[in-house]
Simulated assay, not measured.
Amino acid sequence: MIPNFGMGTFRLKGPTLTELITEAVQMGYQQIDTAQAYENEADVGKALAQTQSDDVFVTTKVWHENLKHQHVLDSLKTSSDKLQRDCIDLALIHWPSPNDEVPLEETLDALTEAKERGLIKHFGVSNFTIDLLERATQHVGSENIMTNQVEVHPFMQNRKVTESCQQKGVKVTAYLPLAKGEVMSNSTLQKIAHEHNATAAQVAIAWELHKGYVSIPSTTKVSHLRSNFAAQKLQLTDQDMADIEAIDQGERMIDPSFAPDWD
């Protein structure tokens, strides 16, 4: 089972990331989320090796240039070596193949083979629309798609996709939970934070966890790492949840040229 809270590593690399992960593991973080495209798997692996953290759940993602069958297998072997893990806990399709250049079914078959060969324990998807998720679950069964990692934060609650995931029994992993820092200046989140003697960032994370999502905030500061971790203990009221639901603006922040047709 994927831990409900973890550390994201997007845009982090080098000694700074290695030190942050070391601190995170010592604090009790149970999941580290990385990706081939982040170019930091080796830094993650170095930290995990230093901390001898065999029980930390490691998630990586296969880049969209590696979605052909053999490329999936080869790239996961490379990721495994960089992460210094014999078996990666979870591998995701980072983005669906642009214009379906590589059929989704081919990639899913490759991930199934990777699992059978012991390269990975589980697999899932990321940035999948309702239609793509339906296609994936039709091919391998919803029980074999551990999660769909999508952008979710108070300003982009992605309700249709998250509801589809939950109906299928596919866990939602919410990336960019702090909306690139925008949550800190929102008056609603600040008000709720004040009432709980917390921060707006903690409120945003607690909201995701209360929704049953996996939250993977990233940070460059140890103090924020500790604060994010403490958000797991924050108990929001039903009114808090309703107030946060009301600030949804459909504000998508990650939308590269190769993204799928979201609608």
Rank of each mutant, 00 (worst) to 15 (best):
I244W: 03
Q167N: 11
I2G: 06
V102R: 06
N197Q: 12
T18P: 01
V25D: 05
R135E: 13
I254Q: 14
E163D: 15
V222W: 09
E208I: 00
E23K: 09
T199W: 01
R117W: 00
E182F: 00
P154C: 08
G212T: 11
Q26A: 15
E23T: 13
L17H: 02
K168T: 03
A49E: 14
Q166M: 08
T9A: 06
R117D: 07
K77L: 12
I205S: 05
H139M: 02
M253Y: 10
F155Q: 06
P256L: 10
I254W: 15
Y175G: 03
Q235M: 11
G181S: 03
T16V: 09
V170Q: 06
T147P: 02
G212W: 06
E105D: 11
Q239D: 13
M184Y: 11
A179M: 05
E39T: 10
I247P: 04
E101K: 15
P103H: 02
W262H: 05
A35N: 07
H71R: 12
A193I: 11
G8A: 12
A246F: 07
A230M: 09
V140L: 13
A259L: 12
F155V: 09
A204H: 10
S215G: 03
D131S: 15
I93N: 07
V72T: 10
S79C: 08
S223E: 10
Q52N: 14
R135S: 05
